[in-house]
Amino acid sequence: MATPVVGVLALQGAFAKHIETLNSLGVDAPEVRLERELDTVDALVIPGGESTTMSKMLDLNGLRDPLAKRLADGMGVLGTCAGMILLAAEVLDGRPDQKSFNAIDIAVRRNGYGRQIDSFEADLPLEGSDDPFRAVFIRAPKVEKAGPGVDVLAEVADVPVLCRQGSITVASFHPELTADNRIHKGFLATIDV
């Protein structure tokens, strides 16, 4: 199988950390800010950051419609934290002008785990492994509802934190902030080239 080129949306946020992780797995991971850059990638990571800022920049940089089209075509996407918010079907406590792509059938509450002072890390059991994943949650979105077509891959305190539907994978936490690359590997395995 050819190695996919996995772009990282670099409008704002933790894009550099995702690029480091993907590069460590031998994957070419260019920054994506404009439509012509999106056109060159097979899959995309939407990183954590401020979803309000990213949503605004998607419009200002003319990426909203091209990205919606790629999502409709089934491009593989990993969305972490703010990326999860941007991909969700429904956003609670968002800004009224905040738009999401409705690419995965979940409802998420922005800052659902509270402010920075409530941010935390915790062990996450992963299916098929005895080693837990150390998951870092930062002003994280909380999944309040997952539709019947959504696979819940991991939970913390009975709340889904890692979900997949078709080509879309989303996490409330930040797999790019730890050296453990299993979440990225799992995502790469879903990409068709």
Partner: peptide, 28 residues
């Protein structure tokens, strides 16, 4: 609350604190 019963859950680590700075990158 069931969440607080998770023994592995820790707030205020350097990783959690530096992590927010990572999220603010490329911004104003």
């Amino acid at each position: 609350m069931s969440e607080t019963s998770d023994q592995t859950r820790v707030a205020g680590t350097q990783r959690v604190k530096r992590g927010l700075a990572e999220m603010l990158k490329g911004g104003v």
